[in-house]
């Protein structure tokens, strides 16, 4: 498979064209926004959290296939997770992207660290300038979780 075929996997294009949980939440929720000023990608996230568990999520934004698909796939895996599990997922995702998450290596087999479809984004690693696109939803998620 060429690097480009690896980058633009079918599952990524599917999430780009049919983003899950697009919109905003009406009940009580946390809201966070992320922006890549250099390329103009925008991502916003609503999270409903009850008793430390993410019970609902909604996303909005505009940008490239990588940033928007990453966000859509992210909401698929974080709903139903605890805040701690969502943070672990974030670290697991960033490690997959080759992003430094500090000196706290995680056990990849622990519960909550299953990335599922998100593993399709591994191809982004070969395109260093695009890693920040894939990471935008996750930095936004961290901002949201910090408010919880």
């Amino acid at each position: 498979m060429s690097s480009l075929d690896e980058l633009y996997r079918q599952v990524i294009l599917d999430h780009y064209r049919n983003p899950r949980r697009r919109g905003s939440l009406t009940g009580p929720h946390i809201h966070a926004e992320g922006l890549n000023p250099s390329c103009g990608d925008e991502f916003s996230l609503d999270l409903q959290i009850e008793d430390g568990v993410i019970t609902d999520a909604a996303i909005q934004g505009q940008g490239c296939s990588i940033s928007q698909a990453s966000g859509s796939m992210m909401t698929d895996v974080i709903v139903g997770k605890t805040i701690d599990e969502a943070r672990e997922l974030t670290a697991t995702f960033k490690l997959m992207m080759g992003i430094d998450v500090g000196d706290d290596p995680l056990d990849p087999d622990r519960p909550g660290a299953v990335l599922g479809d998100l593993e399709a984004l591994q191809g982004v690693k070969k395109f260093p300038v695009r890693i920040k696109c894939a990471d935008l939803p996750w930095t936004t998620l961290t901002d949201a979780l910090d408010q919880a």
Partner: peptide, 14 residues
Amino acid sequence: ADIHAHDIATILDQ
């Protein structure tokens, strides 16, 4: 089409 400009630039760069 619906191909974002950054995706176009990445593909052309290859």
